[in-house]
Nucleic acid binder design. Structure first.
Lengths: 344, 344
DNA sequence: GCCGCTTGCTAAACCGCTCTAGTTGTCGGG
DNA sequence: CCCGACAACTAGAGCGGTTTAGCAAGCGGC
């Protein structure tokens, strides 16, 4: 038989379709004996539910959606996404929920996909990443009424759940560490200013500068690409009063910056210390290995998955989950301020 | 209205459900005037097809599946996968086909997912990666009768379509280049020996060694991790007659190897040349930048997507698509054999 | 002995869509 | 003027499940 349906099972077991449905879904309405019989027959016939038929009667789609609005070619570059994806997978596949993934060009297209998938009953919920300063997507997801979790900072996002790490605290810990090493001229190669976390990090940096009495605190915005990271580094290191420490908002940019330092003959960490606000193999395998902020992105993905599944199970109550604050992993790219450095 | 159905449209337009279905799907059976009216009403009511209802009547699921059997944590490491994914996305989303992605632990679990998704009508086809030497998955996919495309080497895979690049030719071009630079002691840090492409590359290496009269050609197998890549490099560079050039099967391992060379005080490219069999930002941003085999993985993904969509459209005829042979991008990590090197 | 309640099951409606068979209306040809 | 062909449309069955209403049997209590 091509594909047994519950009608086939019912016939073979000598019961009605309804009874089979009850038995297979563990609901009351059949005796234990009948249930066992039905389960056995279903097993014999290798029956599997038809997801479309289930979805049609309003059941779950057993899938969640993740739409990323970035140029498709750049996704591959960020270890962050790949790691997050892995974590999501791990969290979802435990409950056999699939991930619908789509990469689109811009936010407008992203919203269109939300609408389409929602109206097509393709997914049970969404994961929202790259939260922007005034993000139009939040309102759309609320309107659609689909359980969603946003990956971002603290604070409520309307009725949506959120998972967030305290990157303000994390940024403070980096600056304090560098300050303790004696650095006072610290620069920051940041990401896209339209992203919320970029704003948050810049603000944290400014605050700690005031508190710790740091001389100069320059934030150079970039588009997260290695090219702009390199360019920003070149500019910073060419200044007469060049910084003695640079914080990069991603490990890709930090590695690019490291390369520029080498190319310009500026010793790392002897003349300039480098810290990456993101950790991955990348930071480990270069030389010198980069001091980096380790946030367990894989675990983060798992947590997002768990939160989304919870929200789907109980949609009325949005959750707000704070993950472990990222911690600084010190490697070889940071060192105390050398005496000679000041005069360079 | 929560969600208009074709019955709602039919009522409003004063026609039958059937007429609406015909009109919306561009099939004959309605006059142009009626079709226009129905389309207008559907537009007004913001109607969207219910994917489950369509799938139930045997239509396409408008989704394809990609299952990757690797430890979830390691996926994030390989730029290759992320790039491939991006390309797949680009190819699929043009036709609004979604990608069902799942990461599992081993091949057994992977096969189980194939069976489940197939029987649940969740996908219209599969993409098979990491082809192994005697791969049990091919038979399963043939048995399931779902259109599939395998990403791998030349040769038929039963009734499945395939997309492949000639990495034999690519490996030959690397060796010839190194040989032309004067290198005769070339080593190879390879990937998992159970993978077909690993086997193919090793064989190509041996063949060209014979042809070009190279002294020694050692292939060291690894698991593709940066750790094993580093370890293999350490071993190779510690030998009394250490190689003057090393070919790495992935850019991650090549970067790790570069780090080891630095740590051991072996100059790159002065004392040892390094080539990566895979290109990504990684190879570009380290110092010295790595000479690498550039295969446009993004384009590869697009091609795989296109081939799969074709195979789904016309299932009887499996396709075999050869992609552009990867070409060597020479950067700073390779140099002619220095005179002094031979005596070291 | 009858009532009412629970248990275990069946029959059938329903979800939103597709598609076949059948009906109606129009038109041309003999 | 009638018949057949064809175009345009309708009615309704069916996809594979879930779920509700209903029914028969069994059983305890008064």
């Amino acid at each position: 038989m091509a594909r047994p349906t519950i009608a086939d099972i019912a016939r073979r077991a000598g019961v009605s379709k309804g009874a089979v449905s009850f038995a297979l879904n563990g609901r009351p309405g059949v005796s234990e004996a009948t249930r066992a019989l039905i389960l056995q027959v279903a097993e014999e016939m290798n029956w599997r539910p038809h997801s479309a038929a289930r979805a049609l009667v309003g059941a779950k789609a057993e899938a969640v959606g993740l739409v990323i609005a970035r140029p498709a070619r750049t996704i591959g570059v960020e270890p962050f996404f790949a790691q997050l994806l892995s974590g999501l997978q791990a969290g979802l596949s435990a409950r056999a929920v699939a991930l619908h993934l789509l990469v689109v060009e811009d936010t407008a297209a992203e919203i269109e996909v939300y609408r389409r998938w929602a109206s097509e009953h393709r997914v049970d919920g969404f994961i929202l990443v790259d939260l922007q300063v005034r993000d139009p997507r939040v309102a759309v997801l609320e309107e659609l009424g689909l359980p969603s979790v946003v990956l971002g900072g603290p604070g409520r996002h309307g009725s949506l759940s959120s998972v967030w790490a305290d990157d303000r605290e994390a940024m403070l810990s980096i600056v304090e560490y560098l300050s303790a090493l004696g650095h006072t001229r610290i620069a920051h190669v940041s990401g896209l200013p339209s992203f919320r976390h970029t704003q948050r990090r810049i603000r944290a940096l400014k605050d700690s500068a005031r508190r710790l009495g740091l001389v100069e605190l320059l934030s150079v915005p970039t588009d997260f690409s290695d090219a702009e990271g390199a360019a920003a580094t070149r500019t910073l290191l060419s200044r007469p009063d060049r910084p003695t420490a640079i914080i990069y908002d991603s490990d890709v940019m930090a590695v690019a910056g490291l390369g520029v330092a080498g190319e310009m003959g500026v010793g790392v960490p002897r003349e300039v210390s480098i810290v990456a606000f993101d950790d991955s193999v990348l930071a480990r395998i270069v030389h010198p290995a980069l001091t980096a902020l380790s946030r367990d992105t894989f675990a983060l993905g798992q947590q997002v998955a768990a939160t989304l599944l919870e929200t789907i199970a109980e949609p009325g109550r949005p959750r707000e989950v704070q993950t472990q604050t990222p911690r600084l992993t010190v490697r070889e790219s940071t060192a105390p301020l050398a005496d000679g450095t000041k005069s360079v």
